[in-house]
Design a protein around this nucleic acid. Structure first.
Lengths: 336, 336
DNA sequence: CTGAAAGCGCTTACAG
DNA sequence: CTGAAAGCGCTTACAG
């Protein structure tokens, strides 16, 4: 059995390819006699229209590409970006798109190149995309949306969390619980979200008259578990002498790394030290003690991104830039 | 600027489309004069060949599809399958394939359908695919490989871990540390890996004369953290009265859930109870205490799968069925 | 209601 | 070394 084409169906049904095409698409007229026979043949022979040929003529592939940039290894399996990807996958399926997933470590233009050749209908760019990539993609006039990117680009749909507000929430939560000596571990400040989370936190503290001294803030070069552990370990002396009673880390991975170190020192959390993270990755709830954190609605991010991209692709008018997502405090054992 | 095609390049270079096509592909002759001019034009105009048109004529899309089945939500972000996916993504890129990622909750044929229409060059099927899906895919003669599937199908390349051997390793590790009262929490036995892990464990115990009584084995209906926690909680009385000194769970998620419960009861791990999991997901090392487990080489699984699929696609002769991957004991705090 | 023809953007023999 | 022609599997006006 060779590739089954519309031609074969037409032959067997004793009609022309045009007629077959019409009944498949449901557009244009067809006699019920022809229709029944063709439909039956399709069922019987399990004919599937060739999407490649369709894309060729319609100039629409019904494919979208997801480009995720991460310097380090885990990508799809990343506890935060993976969630966004999952939501994209679900939503894309419901809108009848297939999705190409591409990861890029070097942020070379190579992965973008692929997408251009494949002629995807649109692109979702996740995480810290560099300007040259954005320029490049723009040049090809492919519709795209950004999710949790590091930069704001004019006129580009960019789906982000209200990170500054989240930072404020942390400060509020901790100070309400009478903490005033708070140690901060901040992720890479080149990334929009880490930067704003820290900013929101610091501003609130200043406002209520408990300014955060700069020596209380340590900067991590990567937002990883290992880095959280290391930073906590290397500043342990300073921490004890400083009389800190709590820690805010600008993401859960860093917070969890720090907690691991504390637990190994037999510190009781939250009795001796309270800890707050940010993101609400799955592990945050599973860790023991579970981690109080600020939930970022990753599902909504992925869903929104896909829906908006679809609108862009269909050239819908008046697409409004999405509102920034509102984060939410998740109160767990680490501050209870 | 409209879509830039080979026709436009030919026009500007003052040659025919055939010639342009030849210099792009590098096949066939071309005068260096023509070549230089064409190459320059391509560079200047940033021409990208349309992959859809290419696929149309070559009957090769250079796309592969990854089909992951999970009954419950997390898919790409799954700590185990996500890792396999990452490895596939990396390897596929190096072999010049783009990858469609599809997830399916209902294991309907719908997602398989998409793949057939898109005419992917091949498919990677992950996790518990049902027979009807396999039959369906087989009918379309699309090359495919299975990874960590639940069933063995004759003549199908199936990449799996030596789970039975892994189960044996756990038994050996625990008994070497003088544990004889071992409580077992086993994941769904319909899944090949959970089944074999348990089997390997039980057989070894029987061999060395410490048979595992059936009341010491509890079955989880899903292999999740929540289920591990619940099972531990609901059998806590029995556990204490049984004088157990250790736990083996057939995957890390279950083990971690059980540990979380134990820690909440202020049990000291491993002093009072030792715990061993299986998989070595990232979180196993991060948990406090870190979890002793059997590492499954997910990276190798994904890499192998992709390489073998590529061979299948290129119709290479004598492709040998891959050896089952050897697992490895990772000795951590939970049994130290 | 239906068929012939042209075309989507490429590649691949085949002449020259 | 190069160009004209046919074809990959569809869809879409356009006649009839």
């Amino acid at each position: 059995m060779d590739n089954l084409t519309i031609k074969e169906i037409a032959l067997r049904a004793g009609v022309s390819k045009s007629t077959v095409s019409r009944v498949i698409s449901g557009k244009g007229y067809s006699s019920s006699g022809a229709r029944d026979k063709i439909l039956q043949l399709i069922e019987e022979l399990q004919y599937k229209p060739n999407a490649v040929a369709r894309a060729m003529v319609s100039q629409r592939t019904h494919n979208i590409g997801v480009l995720i940039y991460r310097r380090h290894h885990p990508i799809a399996s990343h506890p935060f970006y993976g969630k966004i990807l999952d939501a994209i996958l679900m939503t894309a399926a419901s809108l009848n798109y297939s999705v190409f997933v591409t990861t890029d470590h070097e942020m070379s233009l190579r992965s973008a190149d692929y997408m251009m050749e494949k002629r995807v209908d649109g692109l979702i760019l996740i995480s810290r995309l560099q300007q040259n990539v954005i320029d490049y993609i723009t040049k090809f006039r492919v519709p795209y949306v950004m999710v949790n990117g590091s930069t704001e680009v004019d006129g580009v749909i960019h789906i982000v969390n209200q990170d500054e507000e989240g930072g404020r929430m942390v400060a509020e939560h901790l100070t309400n619980a009478r903490h005033s000596r708070i140690f901060v571990i901040a992720g890479p400040q080149t990334h929009r979200s880490h930067n704003l989370r820290l900013k929101g936190f610091i501003n609130y503290m200043a406002q209520i008259g408990i300014p955060v001294p700069s020596f209380s803030v340590k900067y991590a070069s990567t937002s990883t578990f290992g880095e959280g552990y290391e930073l906590m370990s290397s500043h342990w002396e300073q921490f004890r002498e400083g009389g800190y009673t709590s820690i805010f880390a600008t993401n859960d991975m860093i917070a969890l790394g720090a907690m691991k170190f504390l637990l190994e020192q037999s510190i009781r959390i939250p009795d001796q030290i309270a800890v707050v993270g940010f993101d609400d990755i799955d592990f945050a709830a599973m860790f023991s003690p579970s981690l109080t954190t600020i939930r970022v609605d990753t599902e909504e991010m992925g869903t929104q991104a896909t829906i908006l991209l679809d609108k862009l692709i269909r050239q819908e008018q008046n697409i409004e830039n999405p509102k920034q997502l509102m984060p939410k405090l998740i109160f767990r054992q680490s501050t209870k």
